[in-house]
Amino acid sequence: MNISKSTSRTSQPVVLTSLMIGLLAISFSAIFIEWSTAPAAVIGMYRLWMSVLLLSPFALKRWREFGRLSLRDIGLVCLSGVFLGLHFLFWIQSLKMTSVASSMIIIALEPIFVLIGSVILFGSRVSKSGIISMLFAILGCAVVASADLGKGGGHLYGDFLSLVGTLAVSIYMLAGQKVRASVSSTTYNVLVFLVAGLVLFLFNVMTKTSLVSYSGHNWLMFTLLAVVSTVLGHGLFNWLLDTVSATTISMTILGEPVGAIVLAYFLLGQPVLLLQGVGSVMCLIGVFWFLRTNSSRQSDDEENPAGQETDSAYRGDGPERFDAGHA
């Protein structure tokens, strides 16, 4: 795979190192969550709001972008924020109930769900290869879930929550794609993170969950999620989009479940069952196949302008595709 759009050979080691650092940073997201004893909504709320504090200085440099937002854009930002908040609520809770392997593999289906939504909402077309790869990936997730059958209803419910969280983050991507074409990813993230954090704040208030009575260890995990997984991890990917292709970033992010599973094995002592391993490989092959198929169609569309609109419905028009959605 050609990793570079415009980098020289001398800069390729820097690019590769940055890709690996970014991958490691987002892979640690599930580990930090497992290491925290705080409720899911509290973890998500502080991760989002701390990220806002870190990103705000960069967003304020683009303050004119805020004025370009129409009422429709603001409505879409709010809708995106609601579903991002729900995503964190369901996905983080899934990690509390099932294994990292099961939760992370299921959420790897996000790009497939986004394309399905694009087909329904925007009339995007899917090739036969795309359909086969999607079905193969979904079958792989079913195999992963089957490994949890003997672990009790709690693990299966955790798998279900991960699936719901994946659907929520897919809606978040679809709802905000028009706004992401108008403003930078930093500005968009700050606005959406604010709304998503507010959703989780209201959930905590309604459920009478404590907002501040947590140990220093938990506050450290909140901070690491914001600094390492969100700002450093996805920040590196956004920065690299100036020099490497979006497909390369997609393929790198595809390694997140693998990285999280390996880290969970060594740091959390979570073994990978045979069915989980088989299903994980099937799912990742299916998603990889899907992304490669979509990338090929993208190249065809660049030669055929009539296909550009269809492809952009999935891709979100560039860097904003990698705006710290779930990890």
Rank of each mutant, 00 (worst) to 15 (best):
I92R: 04
V205Q: 11
D311W: 12
Q93I: 00
F266V: 11
V195L: 05
S118I: 02
G130A: 01
V258I: 15
A168L: 03
V100I: 03
A59G: 07
R72P: 01
G277W: 00
G316Q: 10
G67T: 07
V227R: 07
S51H: 02
S299N: 03
T98D: 04
T310F: 13
V190R: 07
T248K: 12
G165R: 02
V192Q: 02
Q12Y: 06
L161M: 13
T37A: 14
V287C: 02
T209Y: 03
G75C: 05
T230Y: 13
R297H: 14
S312M: 11
I106Q: 03
L16G: 02
L273E: 10
V15K: 08
T10S: 15
V114S: 06
L135V: 11
N204D: 13
Q93M: 08
A142I: 03
A264S: 12
A181L: 07
L76C: 07
G316P: 13
N218Y: 01
C141P: 01
A168V: 05
S170A: 08
S299I: 06
D300T: 03
L24C: 15
S102R: 10
M251G: 03
W289T: 11
D242R: 08
E320L: 09
E320C: 08
M173K: 06
G325T: 12
W35V: 02
T310I: 13
W49E: 04
L198H: 09
H326R: 11
N204H: 02
A137L: 02
T230Q: 15
S4P: 05
K5N: 15
W49G: 04
V144Y: 01
I106T: 07
I3T: 05
V183E: 09
S312T: 04
L291A: 04
A137V: 01
A264M: 05
S4A: 13
T37I: 14
L220G: 14
C283T: 15
A306E: 15
M97K: 12
L95V: 00
F90C: 11
M221C: 14
F160W: 14
V14Y: 09
A246D: 10
S29N: 15
L198C: 13
M1P: 00
V262Y: 00
S182M: 13
M20Y: 03
A168D: 08
L220Y: 07
L139I: 06
I26D: 00
L224R: 09
V183H: 09
I131D: 01
M251H: 10
V179L: 04
D159A: 08
A41E: 13
I43R: 12
Y214H: 11
A226H: 04
